[in-house]
């Protein structure tokens, strides 16, 4: 039976008729048209589908849209500024060659942002362990770790500048 689900996606309220079994990733990609969130494995292994639900990173291929009814969701499309300026973590991935084919990148970036938000002083080991839910078949991970280190520094600097400005 179709039912209505409503959530805030990247700052906008969206409401769609879905089936009960509609996954969050299907909702985002097919109902809302945000195809930046990828499906790599569909079996909870690869993390290409990671989005933030109320600020926490989750695998949207293992979550029902109905489970997050009423929640606030951020996808990779919601990270950049309104003027198109990349989020510091996105910029760091570009700068440090944290991607090759780019398929895993949306999930990597979303996981990395959640990681930095929860712990601003990450060691290399923290980053490697924090990204255990994300698989990349191209890069060999070293440049991803470098990118996250640089992204974390940039996010912390932004945060410090914001506090200084207040």
């Amino acid at each position: 039976m179709p039912c209505t689900v409503t959530m805030t996606v990247n700052g906008k309220t969206v409401s769609r008729e879905v089936e009960e079994r509609t996954l969050l990733v299907t909702f985002l990609r097919e109902h809302v048209g945000l195809t930046g969130t990828h499906v790599g494995c569909d079996t909870s292994q690869c993390g290409a589908c990671v989005v933030h639900v109320d600020g926490r990173s989750v695998k949207s291929c293992a979550t029902l849209a109905l489970q997050v009814d009423g929640a606030t969701v951020t996808t990779i499309e919601g990270l950049a500024a309104a003027d198109g300026a990349l989020h510091p973590m996105q910029a760091a991935f570009r700068e440090h060659h944290g991607l090759q084919c780019g398929f895993c990148t949306p999930g990597m970036v979303m996981s990395a942002v959640d990681l930095v938000n929860s712990n601003p002083s990450l060691s290399e080991q923290d980053i490697r362990e924090g990204l255990e839910g994300n698989i990349c078949r191209c890069t060999g991970y070293h440049n991803i770790v470098k990118a996250v280190q640089a992204g974390a520094e940039a996010m912390n600097a932004d945060q410090a500048a914001k506090i200084a400005a207040e």
Partner: peptide, 9 residues
């Protein structure tokens, strides 16, 4: 347990 995303759910 599992990875960060599994632990979040």
């Amino acid at each position: 347990i599992g990875d960060r995303q599994v632990r979040n759910m």
